[in-house]
Structure formats: structure tokens, C-alpha cells
Design a protein around this nucleic acid. Structure first.
Ligand SMILES: [Mn+2]
Ligand SMILES: [Mn+2]
Ligand SMILES: [Mn+2]
Ligand SMILES: [Mn+2]
Lengths: 218, 218
DNA sequence: TAATAATTTTAGATTAGCCTAAATAAAATA
DNA sequence: TATTTTATTTAGGCTAATCTAAAATTATTA
């Protein structure tokens, strides 16, 4: 198996390369893992030796098939544990990430598959992120940022692209939790802020910065 | 917090000093942690620095108050996770120990207390071992080895002093699981083996070696 | 395109946890 | 009690993961 640290690097590379299929840079990884570039270079050599990544000096890095597999498995574990913490233990969606960062390294395929069944094979975690199934398949939904919606458009809040506790708590306070139906009432030209109606009841104004991090299914 | 490794040493010292309040020796710890005596000495110095143990060169070691506290907390976590694995995820009692060895190091008081509540604050784990409460209190039951029972005596199987998978599976096959009512039918003088009746139905003969590792509440 | 800036890698150290072999202390035995 | 055996500690090294500082490479800009 891979070490705790190796797993965290693989996960970092995965998250950094999602969407853009570009190679990931040393500095990006250093930032995400809270280490220094020199340390990252050391680890990249090691992961490359193990054939978990494709690495060319100075040219950045991509995950190999086995590296991708390992990364997706860690993410599966992370998201299932987050679901467990919220649905079974009563945690709030802003409280679970750090604990899941530890739990995701528990190493037992049987455990995670039984947990999956116990939870009813959930499709998404408490933040709306898709949970890979046991074969590693991820069902991505097509989601749109609120900041990209036009006046009059409607949709259901289905994800967030910012997972910090402070942001999630704000959404909670605004009533913009997962499943909320929203309609864009007005786009304020001056600063890009947006007025929207939640569940056909409440009107709220949110900044462009907030709107960029809320993902909606149209 | 303490490192994964430090926690394992504290746990080892705790288990080795249970019952006999004697100081624990370097070699005992080395055996329990699958390391060498020299490595243990290194760690004992470190734990002593941190005031987690009382250590005098060549004289063995005992847990300090804070060390005991830490050890009991790890054991609480271990046993609660074992209970979870058996009661919620459907694991057998011989399958949970290794996974719990990993889970016991997850570091969140909130998590473990919520898990405790979710599980209904169980008193004992799947092996009959008492689960410390959130204040660290352990309710030890007075249990007797089957090997110490006399002919005609009755009791309820309530614990095991051997946790290996092979032993637990044997008990399962014999029908000697936790909660079984047993009565000593006959003591065989020749080899110390014991004939007993389980739940007033089945008769079984068990060796002295097996009998020594089954704990009964009279 | 040549100079400058930014990024990445290498060199050389550090720390935790582990090891073997040698030295020392304690316990057992003659 | 002197000797031998056993247990423990010390000495010296190793590996994984990290760091800072310096060197090398790539990217940017004048
Ligand atoms: Mn998370
Ligand atoms: Mn999540
Ligand atoms: Mn156990
Ligand atoms: Mn147990």
C-alpha cells in the first residue's frame, strides 16, 4: 500500500488536474499540500518510481492509471465518510472535512464497501460532490455557477466549489443549502452582485464572489 | 497530540500493566509492539520527556496520569469502533480488530462521543471488553475463567482473554459466543479438559487451553 | 533575442522511528 | 560471593519526509 503522505500527494494532483487535463506544477502541489517545492520534487521522483504518476523534469506531472485509481479510491472514502458523519452522526456540512481527511486513509476495501451499503450507496456527499462507486466510476452532473446564470433562470443548488467552513456557514445562514430552488431575480451591473429568490419565498442578495462558488443544476 | 507511534506504545504499556500493577519491562513492550528493545528505550525516553510515563532506567515503566488518560481514550475508541463494525456494518467479531487498530487513532473527541451516542452508549465491545465512558471510567465486571469453574457451576459467557481470529472462529463453531449460558458437566482429570452444556441443549468438550481463555459471569 | 524573473531541481541538513552491535547493569547461579 | 546469563541501554546508522539555500532550467519582457 501507499503511505499516508503518498496518498495525500496523489489526491492533491487529482484535485489540481480535475477539469483542466493539463499537467500539474510543482508549486501548485506544494501549495495544496502545505509543503515546499523542494519537498514536492522529492516526492514526485518517488511516485514516478512507483509508476503512480507521469513525471518529466520541469514539465509537471499527470496521474498514471494506477495513480488515478488510487486517488479516486481515496476520494470515494473521503466522501462516504463525510456522508456518514452528516447523515448518521449529525455533523453539519461545514464540520466534516477535517475528520474525513483522517478517515480517508483507513485501509480496508471491505470496510468501505460495507459502509457504502450501510449508507444506502449515496450518489453525492454533503457538499454535492459525486461519490465514486466501488469500481471507481464517477457520475459528474452538469452544474453551472450561479455567477453564470442569466436573469429569470431557475435551478436547484447542487454543489459548492469552495468548501471552507466560513463559506458553508454563510450559505446556511442565507438559506442556500443543497436542494434549495433558486431563481435569478436581478443582476446588479455595478458590482456583479445578484438578487435571487429562494424556494419562491425569500429574496437574497449575494456578491459575485459568493455566486461563483455556488453550483446549480438547471 | 501524540503521534500514531506514541499512542501505540501507550496502549501497549496499558495492556501489559493491566491487572498486575507492576512496572512493565522494555522487552515486554518490544514484543507487543513488534519492535526491538533498543527502539523501545528510545521511545521510553521520549514518552518520559512528555511526562506520559514514569521511567527509571533499568527499572521498567508505568503510565503517568496523563499517559493513562491517553491510553484509556485510545482503548475507548478502539472498542467503540469495533462495536460499530459489528453492529452496524455486519462484521464478525473475529474480523474487526485490525480495522479498529487503524480507526482508534482518528483524532476527534466530538466524533467519538457522537459515535458513542449513535451506538447507544454500549457497555462492552464485541469481545465482551468494557468500553470506557467519555470521562475515562471503565466498569470492570468480575469474570471467571471456565478453567477455574467447578463441576455443576453455571454462568454466562461474557468475555475472552484471547482475541485471535482463529480462537474466535473456534468459539463460534462450538457455539460458545457471548451470552451463551453454560454449565460444567464434567471435569476430565486426565488432561484437564472440560465437558459443558450450552444453553441447556448442546454438550461440548473443550480443552483446558480453550477453557482458560473463555471468561464467564457466574 | 538577450536579459531578467520565476519556477524547479539539487545539495546538504534535520527529525522521528527504527535497526544492529557493543557496552553496561541487574538477576540468576554456582 | 564470584561468575555467568539475561535484560537494558548506548552508539552509530538507515529511511521517509521535510526544510533552506544554491544551482539549473524555463518563461517573460525589454
Ligand atoms: Mn471534504
Ligand atoms: Mn465533501
Ligand atoms: Mn481489538
Ligand atoms: Mn475488542
Amino acid at each position: 500500500m501507499h503511505s499516508f503522505t503518498e496518498e495525500n500527494y496523489l489526491k492533491a494532483i487529482y484535485h489540481l488536474s480535475e477539469g483542466n487535463l493539463m499537467a500539474v506544477s510543482t508549486n501548485q502541489i506544494a501549495e495544496m499540500t502545505n509543503t515546499k517545492a523542494a519537498s514536492v520534487t522529492d516526492m514526485l521522483k518517488k511516485l514516478s518510481e512507483k509508476k503512480l504518476i507521469n513525471y518529466i523534469k520541469y514539465q509537471g506531472v499527470t496521474l498514471s492509471n494506477s495513480g488515478l485509481n488510487a486517488a479516486v479510491n481515496i476520494i470515494r472514502k473521503h466522501r462516504l465518510w463525510e456522508f456518514f458523519l452528516v447523515e448518521k452522526l449529525g455533523f453539519k456540512w461545514d464540520e466534516v472535512h477535517d475528520i474525513a481527511e483522517e478517515l480517508e486513509h483507513i485501509n480496508s476495501a471491505t470496510l468501505i464497501n460495507r459502509l457504502d451499503d450501510f449508507l444506502g450507496n449515496p450518489a453525492v456527499d454533503p457538499h454535492g460532490d459525486p461519490i465514486p462507486d466501488r469500481s471507481g466510476l464517477i457520475k459528474h452532473k452538469k452544474l453551472v455557477k450561479v455567477s453564470e446564470m442569466k436573469a429569470g433562470e431557475q435551478g436547484t443548488v447542487s454543489g459548492v466549489s469552495e468548501h471552507s467552513s466560513v463559506f458553508l456557514k454563510l450559505l446556511e445562514k442565507l438559506g442556500l443549502t443543497l436542494g434549495s430552488k433558486i431563481m435569478i431575480t436581478e443582476l446588479i451591473e455595478f458590482d456583479g452582485s445578484i438578487i435571487l429568490t429562494i424556494n419562491q419565498k425569500t429574496d437574497r442578495t449575494i456578491s459575485r464572489e459568493v455566486a461563483k462558488n455556488i453550483l446549480v443544476m438547471l
